[in-house]
């Protein structure tokens, strides 16, 4: 059995501290937005969730390439773990979005470029998980998943481009790093940064945990095979 990495405990501790800090910053420290009111506070979870989802899917893409190249099972496990977490955070984006959109724009959903791209992104990686689920375990599953993981990621900018040409505009332009007129109040920006750090820590705490679970499954599979072999003898 592999021992738990001591760094992981430290990461867990940091996450444990940062999540309450981010909650404090969101609900007590950050000022209430003038036009949207309290509901705007969901922004501090909406944006970090989106960032983590993109990060996770990028990890799926990279580890898929590495798996096809090096044929090492660990890359397949990493891709799978990241995809699963990515779907969780992408679901959070899609849930927090409409909750915010209804009071702010008076509609739950609109087929705007960012919303539609996120939805397609979610569909692609749910399909990725379904593909893994229905392919028999082994090397073939890794190859199929990797091919789909690569094509799915390359697809994202194409989806974005095609929808931008077709779109009806609703989602605001980037508030941070946008053009003139954009920008957040310093207290809000700081709260967002705290939230981003908390989510990133959480992600990098969860990812190795999920990965370890997958390694343990592999180990268990090997043990089962050994037992079966010894019984046959």
């Amino acid at each position: 059995m592999k021992r738990e990495n001591p760094w992981l405990n430290l990461l867990g501790l940091a996450t444990l501290i940062m999540i309450p800090v981010s909650l404090w910053a969101i609900f007590i420290y950050a000022p209430i937005e003038k036009t949207m009111g309290v509901v705007q506070k969901i922004f501090y979870y909406h944006v970090p969730s989106a960032w983590i989802a993109f990060l996770a899917f990028f990890i799926v893409f990279l580890s898929s390439i590495l798996f096809l190249w090096q044929r090492d099972k660990k890359w397949d496990n990493l891709a799978y773990s990241a995809a699963e977490l990515g779907v969780v955070f992408c679901s959070l984006v899609l849930i927090t979005g409409p909750i915010w959109a209804k009071p702010a724009w008076n509609v739950w959903w609109t087929w705007d470029v960012r919303l539609t791209t996120t939805l397609v992104l979610w569909l692609v990686y749910v399909a990725y998980l379904i593909l893994r689920n229905y392919t028999s375990e082994g090397y073939q599953r890794g190859r199929f998943a990797a091919v789909f993981g690569i094509i799915g990621f390359v697809n994202v900018p194409l989806v974005f481009m095609s929808i931008r040409w077709w779109e009806r505009k609703q989602h605001p332009n980037p508030v941070i790093l946008g053009k003139s007129g954009s920008g957040l109040e310093p207290a809000m920006l700081l709260t967002l940064i705290i939230s981003l750090v908390a989510f990133t820590l959480l992600f990098f705490y969860l990812l190795p945990q999920r990965l370890r679970l997958e390694d343990m499954k592999d180990e268990l599979g090997e043990m089962k095979e050994e037992i079966m072999e010894s019984m046959e003898r």
Partner: peptide, 11 residues
């Protein structure tokens, strides 16, 4: 598998 990926082509 196919429908989410061919979204750009279909649009």
């Amino acid at each position: 598998l196919l429908f989410p990926i061919v979204v750009p082509v279909i649009i």
